[in-house]
Design a protein around this nucleic acid. Structure first.
Lengths: 256, 256
DNA sequence: AAGTGGTCTAGACCACTCT
DNA sequence: GAGTGGTCTAGACCACTTG
């Protein structure tokens, strides 16, 4: 048994130097290999991935090392472990909580939200949106507008911008056919997985258009939630601007 | 060596049954023991705790089991590991980021915030505040009001409510003497550690008093951030209501 | 040099799920 | 019963910090 296997099968050997300038532990390399499988689409959202023992044999490392890699990826919500069954690729589709990234909670009760698609069109990216999505001004882009309501009362007005090249064939009908969160559709139909997001939240006054759609007075305070979502490799693939009416709902956050 | 040590030294033996109704792994029991040391104040914020090997001997388990317990507590920000030095109790005092729980970011730059104490008085708890802090209406309570400014421009107006019994002797002078975040003072002077918090965020219109202090027009949209902070054992020990002016700052959140 | 946490291995047994 | 992840152990060596 080699006593210092600093590199693993299937991957170009890394320097074994003791003075390695950027030391990368084996389990981190395993993480990278697994992430590559996810990114390439070899293992899709919801799939069962090979067992720890299997992966350990493939990669030529111990089960413990694979375990550590998977542990971290489970902590990052990339994988889901289920005792006795196996390890699965995380998905937005078949989840307990319908909207994994939506932090809005009702003051009372726990009713689900009704979705209403207002618009879906292909546009050319403005400079601001292009910058956020790491595209060029004028590149193809899909723009979606939708409303979420609770018991018939509008609560969230979302504007969503997507890179056109990744979402070819995204149409109003296709969005209307689909049930559940957009992110489920995105991963199933377009192979785009949202794994992480950053939100910038502000308080703003409702303009006329928003006020009408959300059925609040012009100038009413609204929560503006600007969300940038990323897929594997920290690639930004969605920009979203939500206006939340917070009279009977609030944005919930947990700090640690 | 006993082959199935389902309970550990220093702690009442747990049932060793295979049909245990609520199976609790050894490392979870270690976590509980360490947490007890923190809660009792035996290990204080910033302290170096005993080494893994030391703890393993004390508790009669392997180093790996202690490691797993500490790993989880480090992930929960209760402990901080430093290779070559040891493991320390997390603290709000000597931190890189001054305000660990403040998610407000400037649109540009990264200037620090100036603090201005407006008021500090002992009151009797109202029903609403008593409920949040798990006290009885009329119990002793400390109420603090302060302003945070950026380059002289008011940004945050905070109202803070604390249980009177935990914060005996908290006065305006003592707050003014102190530098840095309140949470550093709280843990050093009162032995109260904030380890977790929940925030409810809404958009509201500025009333007259708030508008004047924050130097915004009456009715201007403000972010209302209601924070309930907890110490060990999920005991609520602070209620805070912040009004954030979000014209040149925003509330930043990361979703996973 | 000594002590700490960090990585890696090998093997045992337990808890859970499915067939 | 077979296979999965979950726990626990023991021991080796590495990387980092401090005296």
């Amino acid at each position: 048994m080699p006593s210092s296997p600093r590199s693993i099968a299937e991957v170009p050997a890394r320097s074994d130097a003791t003075d390695s300038p950027s030391f990368s532990p084996l389990y981190a390399q395993i993480k990278a290999l697994i992430t590559a499988k996810l990114q390439s689409g070899e293992w899709k959202a919801g799939d069962l991935i090979p067992s720890e023992l299997d992966l350990a044999k493939r990669f030529g490392v111990s089960q413990g090392t694979v375990r550590k890699a998977i542990d971290e990826m489970a902590a990052e919500n990339l994988l889901v472990r289920r005792q006795g069954r196996g390890t699965f690729v995380a998905t937005h589709a078949e989840q307990k909580v319908q909207y994994r990234f939506l932090r809005l909670m009702p003051d009372e009760g726990s009713e689900s939200l009704e979705r209403q698609l207002l618009d879906c069109r292909r546009q050319r990216a403005t400079t601001a949106i292009a910058r956020a999505l790491q595209m060029r001004t004028g590149d193809a882009m899909v723009e979606v507008r939708r409303l979420l309501s609770s018991k018939g009362v509008p609560v969230v007005l979302d504007d969503i911008w997507l890179p056109g090249d990744l979402f070819k064939g995204l149409t109003t009908e296709r969005l209307n056919l689909h049930r559940g969160p957009f992110y489920g559709l995105f991963e199933r139909e377009f192979g785009v997985q949202m794994i992480r997001a950053e939100e910038k939240i502000r308080a703003v006054a409702a303009d006329e258009a928003s006020a009408q759609l959300l059925q609040v007075p012009v100038g009413a305070p609204l929560l503006s939630v600007e969300r940038l979502s990323f897929t594997y490799g920290d690639k930004a693939v969605e920009l979203r601007r939500g206006l939340y009416s917070t009279t009977s709902h609030f944005y919930r956050n947990e700090l640690n």
